[in-house]
């Protein structure tokens, strides 16, 4: 195998059909970029889940005077009820990791902090805010265990899972990711079809060379290698562009716009981009080589 001969053939082949090469590079770039973005969104969902599931709590709001829930019919929670609830929560360890009691005063403090610049504060009194238990679960998905044990119990107004709200948001993100993935797959199919067609044209336009190669006894591998490498090089270029656009999304969209505006949450780090880049490169090269290989098997027979 003469490397210099093969590489000069590959270069000549790519230049000979510049418009086709360009089309392949662009479609590979666009489809892989979309694929990369969908992988990035998935990584983002995971990052946020890790970040938030760690912080979410189950809130058990206790009855205040004037609560209209049926379980509060007998008025505000009594000290005995409160102690019983705390004891029951403690008995649920290790599922329950932490139990924190928030009194009316603390709730009011927190409320004032959160809405420091808002006129609402003036209309809310300490009495209007419920006292609560904040419960942290070792496994946030086991929320139902807590809910079924406490919801509707006398003295408890409401059991609230913050995770439910988050999950709605994650479902939205996952939906977006699925759509991006679907479009990426359709684009990848289009890319494969384009590569198949490009290879067919390339094999046809070089049938003189390949015909002579067959006659003088060049091996199939040697005849097909320049075509395969051409497809792989074009795909690698496209994957390179896709990776560059992914880096751009990370540094301009995520780090530049999203992260400063939404400081309360975590965003994917460069490690995610680093993990996705080789996947894009391999997917591109593998797809192009396979498409080319199966096309050539048909058009460059011995």
């Amino acid at each position: 195998m003469r490397a210099s001969f093969v590489s000069s053939e590959v270069g000549a082949g790519l230049r000979r059909n510049l418009t086709m090469t360009f089309a392949v590079v662009i479609t590979v770039a666009v489809s892989l970029a979309l694929f990369g973005v969908s992988l990035l969104v998935r990584a983002q969902v995971t990052t946020m889940q890790d970040f938030w599931y760690d912080k979410v709590e189950v809130s058990i709001f206790l009855c205040a005077r004037g609560s209209d829930a049926p379980s509060c019919a007998s008025g505000a929670v009594t000290a005995a009820q409160r102690d019983q609830i705390r004891a029951d929560l403690e008995s649920l360890r290790p599922l329950v990791e932490e139990v924190y009691y928030e009194s009316k005063t603390e709730a009011f403090e927190r409320f004032r902090e959160q809405f420091a610049n808002s006129p609402i504060v003036e209309n809310v009194t300490e009495e209007a805010l419920p006292e609560s238990f904040r419960v942290k679960l070792a496994d946030p998905t086991q929320y139902d265990v807590v809910a079924s044990a406490f919801a509707g119990r006398p003295g408890i107004e409401q059991v609230n899972d913050q995770r439910k709200v988050l999950d709605q948001f994650f479902r939205l993100l996952n939906g977006l990711q699925a759509i991006a993935l679907l479009i990426a797959i359709v684009m990848l199919v289009v890319t494969v079809l384009l590569i198949v067609n490009t290879m067919r044209v390339a094999a046809f336009s070089r049938r003189r060379e390949t015909g002579i190669m067959r006659l003088v006894g060049a091996s199939n591998f040697y005849i097909q290698l320049p075509f395969l490498l051409e497809a792989a090089v074009a795909a690698a270029l496209g994957a390179g562009l896709a990776i560059i656009s992914l880096v751009a999304v990370k540094s301009f969209v995520i780090d530049g716009v999203l992260a400063p505006s939404f400081q309360f949450t975590a965003f994917v780090g460069w490690d995610a981009v680093l993990a996705i880049a080789p996947i894009l490169l391999l997917t591109g090269i593998a797809l192009a080589s396979l498409a080319a290989f199966f096309t050539l098997r048909k058009y460059l027979r011995v």
Binding site: R214, L215, V216, G217, A218, S219, N220, V302
Partner: peptide
């Protein structure tokens, strides 16, 4: 077999 055809053709000029 197919993969031996090139070897055959190397011994035949056309």
């Amino acid at each position: 077999s197919n993969w031996k055809i090139p070897t055959l053709r190397r011994q035949i000029g056309t």
